Computed example of a mutant assay.
Amino acid sequence: MSDAQTRLGPGALILVVGPSGAGKDTLIDIARTALAARADVHVARRLVTRPAGAGEAHGTLTEEDFTRLQPRFALCWQAHGLSYALGEDVADWISAGHTVIANGSRATLPVARARFDRLYVVHVTAPVEVRAQRLAARGRESAQDIAERLTRAPALDVAPELEINNVGTPQEGGMQLAGFVRRVADEVAPRPRYGAPARV
């Protein structure tokens, strides 16, 4: 879609948000595997203006390309000095009535609520000391950068539909996310009208 103001539906966008190091990508990857048989559930590949790093398989763009393509993005935002976006494939899936999972930003939730007819928020949290260890293990940032990330805590504009305190095993949190996604997808999936001929 080229018009950034067009509302997107009838499918659903599930934005997984939370502080850096909470384990959002790990839980999304586990949910992706658990839901692999669902043709109506997709995991969005974020576009980011930085090289791909450990623990995050995203597409990369230059700032110039990001600016040029911005009108075509389903959603975009800035965080941590970088630009992020969900691409046109997300708009296509949601227009087809499918459910999309994406790693998002708490700061962009007001824009997302105005953009998508069906937006669900999953907030993933973890204690500061756990997040610090995970950020250090990624090897993407200096100790100072990590300290700055740990102090950022933008507020959610409304209560999330699901809160995951990610302190158990990754499998536990991932399956909790997968169960929620499955329920949303079942709710938004188009149902055959009564009396319609059976598909063969």
Rank of each mutant, 00 (worst) to 15 (best):
S2E: 09
R7G: 02
L8T: 01
G9A: 11
P10R: 05
A12K: 03
G18H: 08
P19R: 05
P19V: 02
S20Q: 07
K24H: 08
T26C: 05
I28L: 12
D29K: 10
A36R: 15
A37M: 10
R38I: 11
R38G: 07
A39T: 15
D40G: 04
V43Q: 07
R46L: 11
V48H: 05
T49L: 12
A57Q: 15
G59V: 13
G59I: 15
T62S: 15
E63R: 14
E64G: 05
R68K: 15
L69C: 04
R72I: 00
F73I: 06
F73W: 01
F73D: 00
C76F: 03
W77T: 05
A79P: 02
H80P: 00
G81F: 14
Y84S: 01
Y84P: 00
A85G: 02
G87M: 07
E88Q: 13
E88Y: 03
D89C: 02
W93M: 03
A96Y: 05
G97F: 11
A102L: 10
A102S: 10
G104K: 08
S105L: 07
R106W: 09
A107E: 05
P110L: 12
V111N: 02
R115E: 01
R115Y: 03
F116D: 01
R118D: 13
L119S: 00
V122K: 03
V124T: 08
T125M: 04
T125H: 01
P127S: 14
E129Y: 08
V130H: 09
V130I: 10
A132M: 11
A132S: 11
Q133S: 12
Q133V: 06
A137M: 06
A143M: 08
Q144N: 10
A147I: 02
A147T: 03
L150S: 10
L150V: 06
T151H: 09
R152N: 01
A153I: 09
A155Q: 13
L156Y: 08
D157Q: 06
D157I: 14
V158W: 03
V158L: 13
P160V: 02
L162C: 10
E163R: 11
T169N: 01
Q171G: 00
G173W: 02
G174L: 04
M175K: 05
A178R: 04
F180A: 04
V181W: 06
A185Y: 09
A185D: 12
R191W: 10
